[in-house]
Amino acid sequence: MDVVVCLRRVPFTQEVDLEIDKGQRQILAENLAFVLNDWDNYALEEAISLKERTKGTVTAITVGTEEDEEVLRRALAMGADTAIRIDSEGLTLDPRNIARLLARVIRGLRFHLILTGAQSDDLNEGCVGAMLAEELGLPHASVVNKIELGEDVLEIKVELEGGIEEISTIKLPCLLTIQTGINEPRYVSVMGIRKAAKKELKVVTIEELSLDKEALVPDVYVERLFYPPETGGAEILEGDPHIVAEKILRILRERGVIS
């Protein structure tokens, strides 16, 4: 099975005190570390393991700058056969335009399945997968947490609200957006990435895709980023753990949580 997997590089924001830049439209990225989007990591692992099971190929694609090639190298190190970067050429791209760019490249590839992460860590829009399926006219399913191989079909599992699980059959070719936890992504060692640096990585420009840069103006754009105004109602308990525990206990009793 030939799988195309779409990847995105996102900032690593754990415990970081994010700062908003002066224009109030962006987060300051200077001091941030960047990693492969978590959801995409699971999609990538799923693609590689499908490749291993079915003796197919994996093509990893990202839209971005030269710095974003890092995620493609990781994919190559993990076992992807081909890596393509669509040069974003400094444009701010919204999900629809990302989907359009991806679709242009993917149309020219041989594939049975497209995988994307269910959403990205930074903007959490969860749109690209569905929009890409639409662009390509493919059936799609979102937030998939299990894939079983069938004859020209896949059996997929999706978790619904309230703990309900749904199993569906989807015809190939199709697009699935992947939920975290579907597998255990393997570790890609630094040495593995260094070795993968020697593998070929294709770069495609917007011009080569016969798209007009002017036409890639986002339909949605950020007006203003700001911290929500501080509101009252929070009480910070201080002191040593014994005293804090006692205070918590007292509050819980007062509010009738425990008797």
Partner: peptide, 10 residues
Amino acid sequence: KTGNPFGKPP
């Protein structure tokens, strides 16, 4: 990414 095993910001 962060230079420490906890993933704390540098």
